[in-house]
Design a protein around this nucleic acid. Structure first.
Lengths: 179, 179
DNA sequence: GAACTCATGTAAGGGGTTACATGATTTA
DNA sequence: TAAATCATGTAACCCCTTACATGAGTTC
């Protein structure tokens, strides 16, 4: 139930419309809390009902475009929520189930998924490294920037770890049985 | 949609009842595909409908206990599924949203969640290390065991990485601003 | 026989995904 | 004016979570 707070965070960084939010999610906060535009529109409606954000019809823009911005009550709510604690989200990864299935079945073709996943993780890693170079390198960082960088580093570490798992598994599968 | 295949995998390792499955999930496959007993009962019903498992009333046991075992069609299905590929599951972690919120709000108490999470990850890490000592140390491992060990190592690496993130964030929050 | 545990379910509700709908504006 | 894009939604479905229900054996 963190989507509303992810939206408040993003809108605090910059007020914008629902579709703009959806686009920004695709390359920022959405890396660790993905959301479709359908979800975002519905949630923005709730946030407005709750009095946490306000919308104004965008001028000079096409159609029914609405710009949302965070109200003081929304900022208070985000601050309150940020101060609460939760358990880590449960891990749920089909690849690990496949590896266990391969263990019990004998050779069953899990290498295909491993290669697919390895390619995805390497691609994501490359994307995160681009962002690292572009936004966080070669200068002194503010407190806020260092926090944002830490979040990116978490993504880097996660992708690297998953890629390493795929590599180790592929190596294991191609190795001969020990004597 | 991997719960049916997680159940097939677990039932191949050893046939058992729904409640036994639920208990085994709590300390094995459930580490990377959690499931409640309600989910498990419902899914076992579907698996039986599909002809992938068969149940027999348990003798010498109390009540309505049923023992499930995998049928050849179920084994075929598990083999088929193991050979397919999927994208990595989307990452969705409220802690990372909180860190971004703390970045945009200024101090908002995220340290509380960081300490809570650190404690959980350390506890999980200790549990995985116990399992490692108990099941995978001090002897030659078979192919199946090495695959299972790899899955456990993935859990170890994930928990260690998350704990490290919490430690780094706590350090950053307690450090003074640079000149 | 009352309380507890074992064992198997049912029901309600929420978040997320996928597919579809609709109107307005720009572009060819 | 036809097609493409912008912008905002609705609806159906699925998985998961939480709370509750039920019967059968065991223990005090």
């Amino acid at each position: 139930m963190s989507l509303p707070h992810a939206l408040l965070t993003s809108l605090l960084e910059r007020p914008c419309s629902g579709l703009d939010l959806a686009r920004r999610f695709d390359r920022s906060i959405g890396f660790f809390w993905p959301a479709s535009h359908q979800q975002i529109y519905k949630e923005l409606g709730r946030l407005e009902q709750a009095g946490w954000v306000a919308s104004t019809a965008a001028e000079g823009a096409r159609g029914r475009k609405k710009i949302y911005q965070v109200l003081p009550a929304g900022r208070d709510e985000l601050r309150r929520w940020t101060g609460t604690a939760e358990d880590p989200p449960p891990l749920r990864d089909a690849l690990l189930v496949r590896l266990r299935a391969e263990a019990v079945l004998g050779p069953a073709g899990v290498a295909g998924d491993l290669r697919h996943r390895l390619e995805r993780h390497r691609r994501q890693l490359a994307l995160y490294r681009e962002i690292e170079q572009r936004d966080f390198s070669g200068r002194e960082l503010s407190r806020a920037e260092r926090l944002q960088y830490l979040v990116l580093q978490s993504g880097l570490a996660t992708e690297a770890q998953q890629a390493a798992l795929c590599e180790q598994a592929l190596e294991l599968l191609s190795a001969p049985e020990p004597d």
